[in-house]
Amino acid sequence: MSDNPIKIMIKSKLLSSITQTLRGIGKRMTERIWRLGTGTRLFFLTIFYSGESFKRFHLTLREIYFTGVMSLLIIVVSAFFVGMVLALQGYNTLQKYGSSEAIGVLVALSLVRELGPVVTALLFAGRAGTAITAEIGLMKTTEQLSAMEMMAVNPIARVVAPRFWAGVISMPILATLFSMVGILGGYIVAVPLIGVDDGAFWSQMQANVDFRADIINGVIKSLVFGVACTMIALFEGFDAPPTAEGVSRATTRTVVISSLAVLALDFVLTSFMLVI
């Protein structure tokens, strides 16, 4: 009888901890859904206000320079090494089945269909996405965006839309460059280093890579990744709490969410493309 109040206390403590956990989960979920809605609204606003980024195209050009041209080095170098490693690994396996001439097909198809768009998008999220988030987050922290609004300049039209279109334009170009440079890297390993026949390398590749089914689909993929990566980076920057910690967290989230979104979208797009 005497330990009854204690029991009740323990029970109530347990109950409150459970409700607290549930409340935390619910809060997180509503927070996510809230952010998803805000992000979607920002996306449509960006599309709506993007007229100015084409009318004053030098704004977009500047951003293409910062997101696209400045990413060239990392894209080209990593494409080269990815292509070389693909050729080495592929040769090692194909040789067991006596079909080492198919190395060109292996390198080209895996680059054009998958690795080109996906690795480019991942590198792009790390190289350009973080820069966009940090820049816009800092603009917000230093109240440049509010200052623009005070001067009747729409920050979405002036800051967000040019960066969005720059990302969407840059990504397919970077992805095709990645594929081409990767294939050249694979060629350098396969033909002069390993000694696969030069003609067989290219002719088997041409016989098995379809322009519409493989190359165009790869470009479509990279276009979708471009929209996703850029939009996530822009939204995270736009939504970042105006503190140093907030900007740093937003930058981290950009990389994490972009990478996950790219990989998930890749699966969805591939399944659609294989069905059609």
Binding site: A108, I173, T176, M180, Q206, V209, F211, D214, I215
Partner: peptide, 16 residues
């Protein structure tokens, strides 16, 4: 560069 890579893919790699 992008256009050149696209052309390269179309002519040298693909079956266009």
């Amino acid at each position: 560069f992008g256009v050149a890579a696209m052309l390269g893919l179309a002519m040298k790699v693909g079956n266009l």
